[in-house]
């Protein structure tokens, strides 16, 4: 790619900007590409290339800890995404397309709170609270992780749903009422089908967010409840092997797939409206 040439005068072209931009894009991908590349390394080092091989993937999966952490991560992410998306749909219905009120601002602040409070603070707060509950009830299960993940996933599920609702023509629901739909039927047959792409998008963002979480999981998990990220963080202490690259590659792949789906879903929404 040639970056700067003696092109015709263009007011929007600023000298050096293209060079910086291309460098930034390259630097953004270089570490990730190398990480993925070395996942296919035949040798044991994530820095010295010894030929192509796929053997790190089955090897990682053969590791009982990796397998358990993967399943646990998926269970948590699925549950948290379902819970956060469900409550986010309801909250979005309750807070959009109405006159502004102080109560609504409060709800909006509450929902976005996880985006503003540093994760480490929430993590230690949950460590204390769940510590009490664990002692009081004796329950040590995945419930704590699922609940904590559900909470910080809510804003990610909420935002696309809210955006879609606000962009939706309210006349359509009025039209449904005019055509003899009860309020529930209007929601079921008009609002919900049109909201579905955004619900799916919100679900995916919540899923990715849960799958990526390290800090809160680290503080909330009981003994032997490693998720994939906390397991990987533990490995940094030991001598790093290509196993981590293999797991990372799979996570990156999953993210790219979900994001592509997200983009296709949200792009679809611009079509029906004019």
């Amino acid at each position: 790619m040639t970056i700067v040439s003696d092109r015709a005068f263009s007011v929007s072209r600023l000298p050096g900007f293209a060079t910086i931009a291309v460098t930034v894009l390259v630097m953004l991908y270089l570490p990730i590409v190398l990480l993925v590349l070395f996942a296919f390394n035949a040798g044991p080092s994530p820095a010295i290339w010894e030929g192509f091989s796929l053997h790190w993937f089955p090897r990682a999966w053969a590791n009982e800890q990796v397998k358990e952490a993967t399943i646990r991560s998926l269970v948590i992410a699925t549950s948290a995404a379902i819970i956060s998306t469900s409550v986010a749909v309801l909250a979005a219905l309750g807070t959009t397309r109405r006159r502004k009120s102080p109560g609504q601002t409060f709800v909006y602040l509450m929902i976005n709170q996880p985006l503003m409070v540093p994760e480490i603070v929430t993590a230690v707060a949950l460590l204390i609270l769940f510590g009490f509950i664990k002692v009081a009830t004796g329950y040590q299960g995945l419930g704590y992780l699922i609940l904590a993940h559900s909470a910080f996933c809510i804003p990610f599920a909420y935002l696309p749903i809210r955006a879609r609702l606000e962009g939706m023509d309210i006349t359509l629901e009025i039209a449904a009422a005019d055509l003899y739909a009860t309020p529930w039927q209007a929601f079921r047959h008009v609002t919900l089908p049109m909201l579905m792409p955004a619900v799916a998008a919100g679900f995916m963002l919540a899923f990715i967010t849960s799958l990526d979480d390290v800090i809160i999981s680290l503080f909330v998990k009981s003994a032997g409840q490693d998720t994939l990220p906390t397991y990987m963080l533990g490995q940094i202490r030991r001598n790093m092997t290509v196993e981590v690259n293999a797991i990372s590659t799979l996570l990156i792949g999953l993210t790219v797939i979900l994001l592509t789906a997200f983009f296709l879903l949200t792009r679809e929404r611009n079509r029906p409206q004019k």
Partner: peptide, 8 residues
């Protein structure tokens, strides 16, 4: 994943 990027 932030962790993955930091690893990278």
């Amino acid at each position: 994943n932030l962790l993955v990027r930091t690893f990278a």
